[in-house]
Amino acid sequence: MIFTIAGKELRALFNAPLAWVVLAVLQVILAWIFLVSLDRYIGLQPQLVQYPNPPGVTEFIVAPLFGSGAVVLLMLVPLLSMRLIAEERRNQTLTLLISAPVSMTEIVLGKFLGLVLFLFAVVALMGVMALSLLAGGKLDFGLLAANVIGLTLLGGAFAAIGLYISALTANPVIAAVATLASLLVLWIVNMGAPDPGSPLHLISLMKHYESFAKGVIDTGDLAYYVLLIALFLLLAARRLDRDRLAS
């Protein structure tokens, strides 16, 4: 049932031009960033060789590429997540799902999965871009995998927050703006906390992504994203359920 709903979400995305435009534009932007860092690497290579333990091509090109990808996802996810529930509510199509023998949890999970699969397609395209470096050298696959996992988890966290906010309103534009604002706040919340022990670092989306970018898969960071996703999905399901109870 979850997969039926996820499939429906994906079809809705790809039936409309939005998904294709997004994928195309993203690919252009990320390819540009990729080429620029590749160019810089080639320019710096003669100097790098003089160091005893120089940064490799993966560290120099792929990690920044995924870092930029994270920023791009931050701006992209609100545009995609705003439709999930707000638009269905506005078009009154949500009734179809609620009247069907499907639980609220299944609806929320299905919609979340649909969006995450799309985001994974974006991340996978970036992965393919990185793999093209194999044509001219060697790659650190561990670092690449950590980046892919980290960015997917980050995208999932964005999607879960966006889904919850979309469940709060019947207006997709409000959902998009509110999601973008929330994500930005969670992204930069630790900027004003120079003290590394500050609790603000604990809730910052960016802070937890940093270790993945360095190739470290820390269970603490993993747990942070998983818990964040679970929390917002639960909230979204409860919010949908409340529609039914309010009268």
Binding site: N15, N91, T93, T95, L96, S99
Partner: peptide, 8 residues
Amino acid sequence: TPPLYRDL
């Protein structure tokens, strides 16, 4: 209001 997905 019939719950129809207009794009399908």
